[in-house]
């Protein structure tokens, strides 16, 4: 349920310097957007610094004790450590688990979006450049991918290839490249009609050169703008997959897996296992969406 779902077409806009400055000015002037940027910065920093600031390494099984499991926020553990946000069923310190989970979620979100961008841009560019049968085949595959619920594709794929951060990234790339391909193709088609490309073609420049040196840099803007929102989409998708029991390994929980693990304890009153990582996840997705939305509007990209 991403705003980009309603996309049917995309129009590229010139991303010249003046506009860029205008955008930056607008971001600074809007309090919500400014807040979102600051929040996003903090979350990124926390994720980067997790190994240095977390009281415990939640990925190291030797440092966990099942005797300390499901303790309330603020409890003291057997080794004297204070669990400010409580512990989960394995005795993981929730605060540490959230910091590390943030790391995993961001890693998955950023890497898979980058991967999907690369695949999507290449496919879209190829479709636009060659047209005809190549275009038809690529775009039918894109239609097919977009017509399917992404969660189902990723679920079935992961069910057959197993758990792992790398595997989740592959699955998300698989379901997300198609939207970029469609955007890229639309933008590149607009660009291709411009005179300088025609001139380059007439001049006999190699196709690869035209694609990479002219078409790509001049039509990539809109795709990049939309990708901010897609990072949020990728993080949500990872969380949902973990909730459904496929996804990252259980000993290296992402935010989504932490929430999923807490689900069964929710009704027994042990709310902290699901609630705190949930808040972290929502803050992350919200700030990404707010920033992405502002970027999108400023560049006037419909997607």
């Amino acid at each position: 349920m991403n705003p980009s779902r309603t996309a049917t077409s995309a129009v590229a806009a010139d991303a010249d310097t003046a506009l860029r400055q205008k955008v930056l000015r607008r971001i600074r002037s809007r309090p919500t957007t400014r807040g979102a940027v600051i929040l996003l910065g903090i979350l990124l920093l926390l994720a980067l610094l997790a190994p240095f600031i977390a009281p415990q390494n939640p990925h190291d099984l030797a440092s966990l004790s099942v005797m300390d499991n499901r303790l309330e926020p603020g409890s003291q553990g057997m080794t004297g450590i204070t669990y400010w946000l409580g512990t989960d069923a394995q005795g993981r310190d929730m605060l540490s688990a959230i910091l590390y989970g943030l790391r995993t979620s961001l890693l998955v979100g950023l890497t898979s979006t980058a991967g999907a961008l690369a695949v999507g841009i290449l496919a879209g560019l190829t479709a636009a450049q060659f047209g005809g049968a190549v275009d038809a085949v690529i775009m039918r595959i894109v239609d097919f991918m977009l017509g399917f619920p992404s969660i189902l594709i990723a679920l079935v794929l992961l069910a057959s290839i197993g758990r792992g951060v790398d595997k989740v990234i592959v699955a998300i790339i698989l379901v997300q490249w198609a939207q970029y391909a469609r955007l890229m193709r639309a933008a590149a088609l607009v660009e291709r009609r411009k005179e300088y490309i025609e001139a380059a073609v007439n001049f006999g420049l190699p196709t690869r050169h035209i694609m990479l040196a002219h078409l790509l840099p001049n039509s990539i803007g809109s795709v990049l703008v939309v990708s901010t929102i897609s990072i949020a989409g990728a993080i949500t998708l990872e969380a949902t997959l973990s909730f459904l029991g496929v996804g990252v390994p259980v000993t290296q929980p992402s935010l989504g897996l932490l929430i999923a693990n807490g689900f069964e304890f929710l009704l027994s009153g042990e709310y902290w296992i699901a609630a705190f990582p949930g808040i972290a996840l929502v803050l992350l997705i919200m700030s990404l969406n707010l920033v992405g939305e502002r970027l999108r509007r400023s560049f006037n990209v419909r997607g």
Binding site: M1, P3, A232, T240, L266, Y271, V282, N289
Partner: peptide, 17 residues
């Protein structure tokens, strides 16, 4: 934006809570 951002499963859990 909040409505789009909340992951469906977490939102459901919070409604239950």
């Amino acid at each position: 934006i909040l409505g789009f951002s909340l992951p469906s499963f977490w939102k459901g859990m919070m409604l239950i809570l």
